[in-house]
């Protein structure tokens, strides 16, 4: 078994949270977890199709970063094929996400996208990009747009920050390095969040990467690179808040490498035979939801019954999303060509 990388033990930037913030983070993570569990169930029951990549285990990254952004203004999120939970954290209603997975016209991409192509302009979700790394240039261009509006169009209100999520596998692709160069060169308000879950399908990160510490590649391009325990939502939130503040202040991009783990295979089609049992056990003990719950309880911010009540309420919310998706109509066949061109 490969030596486990030591997680950064004493993060200096760990967020301190109020009761309200703690409950918000907990609820967001539970929504991600229960939504994905329901997806697995629906996939095996033949209600959704294609490749479905679940996010279980990585919730602290989505919640920690996206819930530190402004929801009601001009911040943007770009995701990958593993995008359900990023969409939920960004505020896309669970009903719309579930409907999209069912291919229904009420889905956030009108049933044209599917699991790997969730988009929502109203929630500034730039999309699930299904080819590894291809979302990085797009997100970088959106960050450029924010700067352009501020400086070339004299719009001081254009202070948006764009967050671009991708995995350890993507960080070996040229688009990553090309965009780090341009983002630093032009001081773009973008944050590259690498969810290093150790495995690119069956390729272990160490077998694919000459310098496995991805955060070290930030400084090589002239921007900060931060390593964070991706199973600790407060640590993720802390480094995210710092990076967002820097980006918003015009101080440029940041690389955040969140060390995390997916509790399921690469996709629901993956037999997941390569990852060692011992490795899975080590990481399952670091469950980010349990960890936040323990913290909130230990600090006396919440009571156990309150968390249980949230779990129950979110489960109902997810069940409602399934019912909504089941009851929703299929796209109209006469609209097969709709959305090819802007005028459609």
């Amino acid at each position: 078994m490969v030596q486990e990388r030591v997680l950064p033990a004493t993060p200096t930037t760990r967020a301190t949270v109020t009761r309200e913030e703690g409950l918000m983070l907990y609820e967001d993570m539970v929504l991600g977890r229960l939504f994905e569990d329901k997806c697995a169930e629906m996939y095996y029951r033949g209600k959704m199709f294609g490749f479905v990549h679940l996010y279980n285990g990585q919730e602290a990254v989505s919640t920690g970063v996206i819930r530190a952004l402004r929801r009601d203004a001009n911040d943007y999120v770009a995701s990958t094929y593993r995008d359900h939970v990023h969409a939920l954290s960004a505020g896309v209603p669970a009903r719309e996400v579930m409907s999209e997975l069912f291919g229904k016209v009420t889905g956030c991409s009108k049933g044209r996208g599917g699991s790997m192509h969730l988009f929502s302009e109203p929630h500034r979700l730039l999309g699930g990009y299904a080819f590894v790394s291809e979302g990085i240039p797009v997100a970088t261009g959106v960050a450029f747009q924010s700067k352009y509006r501020r400086e070339a169009m004299n719009d001081p209100s254009s202070d948006g920050v764009t967050v671009c999520f991708f995995g350890d596998g993507a960080a070996n692709n040229g688009q990553f390095f090309e965009c780090l160069n341009m983002a630093a060169l032009w001081k773009l308000p973008v944050i590259y969040v690498i969810e290093n879950n150790k495995w690119a399908i069956g390729m272990a990160h160490e077998r694919a990467t000459s310098v496995p510490e991805i955060y070290k590649k930030g400084p090589a391009f002239g921007m900060p690179g931060v390593e964070v325990d991706g199973m600790d939502v407060l640590a993720v939130r802390g480094v995210a808040q710092e990076a967002i503040a820097r980006a918003r202040a015009g101080e440029g991009p940041t690389v955040i490498e969140a060390l995390t783990y997916r509790f399921r295979g690469h996709s629901l089609a993956d037999p997941d035979e390569l990852r060692a049992k011992e490795e899975k056990e080590v990481w399952s003990k670091r469950d980010p939801i349990t960890r936040l719950a323990d913290h909130l309880l230990g600090e006396g911010l919440v009571k156990a019954e309150e968390l249980k009540e949230i779990d129950r309420r979110i489960q109902e919310h997810v069940n409602d999303a399934v019912k909504f998706a089941l009851d929703s109509p299929e796209p109209d066949p006469k609209d097969l060509y709709k959305y090819i061109f802007a005028e459609d």
Binding site: L126, P137, A139, T140, G141, F144, A152, N181
Partner: peptide, 23 residues
């Protein structure tokens, strides 16, 4: 900014243009 000289990185600057156009 309006005549943006880019590094020689065609796939990335074309993707950036897509992002700028989307927004």
């Amino acid at each position: 900014l309006r005549l943006l000289d880019t590094p020689i990185a065609e796939n990335s600057f074309t993707g950036m243009a897509v992002g700028a156009a989307m927004t």
